[in-house]
Amino acid sequence: MSLLRAEGLSKEFGGVRAIDALDFEIQPGAVFSIIGPNGAGKTTLLNILTGIYRPSAGRLWLDDRLLAARAPHEFAAAGIGRTFQNLQIFFNMSALENVMAGRHLHERCTLAAALLRAPRLVRAERACRSRAAELLAFVGLDAYERSAADALPYGALKRLEIARALAAEPRLLLLDEPAAGLNPSEIREIDGLIQRISGLGITVVLVEHNMKLVMGVSQRVLVLDYGRKLAEGNTETVRNNPRVIEAYLGAGEH
């Protein structure tokens, strides 16, 4: 049984086919990477998988059930979380509150309880706060617990987004270029973090240009080019595929 299956997925932007009749399956527990040159349609694909774009054609199955979600928050409720290539941080909040906001799906809070500060809510808030603090520590940001989000350096913001996505307890976590713009030691930390997330049983979809990272953590790799599947397989087959080498990897490592 696959966790997520896409069939005939397409997305057009005024004649441009960003995703073109794409089929793939993601097995539970795997780190599934998506690579391909800039403009290949990787971000567009993640946007479809999180309900931000509605596909022009095609269908999605989650646990072999047709995914009925429409709005992005319904995709989140179905267990799909993500981070963004261009950061989407709540800069008007603290680092801790960013992660607390990520727990939204797990909070039961009526308007009346919120307005009146019901005792049950006070207890739930305390639990939410400590869970968020644990997640900050999990991604290595415990030092920033009290900081405003806009006081964090770029590399920390990348991990803050991961902590926020984890707060929702997703089954499928989509990471859009988590290592972009990071230095080698930060990339090693992201590498370790992805392995620890995978170790928790969360299925990870990794979109990334850093081949060392991709080849190290992935069980399966999908190569996109002009919205179409150029190749798919384990790291070894993809690395040695002549079409992939020609279109993307080039002569040496990218």
Partner: peptide, 25 residues
């Protein structure tokens, strides 16, 4: 009270980034 509750956090979150608020559920 509202601002410090999950409802208030949701309001502030969608102000900060509506798309990130949505994918957070």
């Amino acid at each position: 009270n509202l601002i410090e509750s999950p409802v208030g956090r949701a309001l502030r979150a969608l102000h900060g980034s509506e798309v990130a608020a949505e994918v957070s559920g």
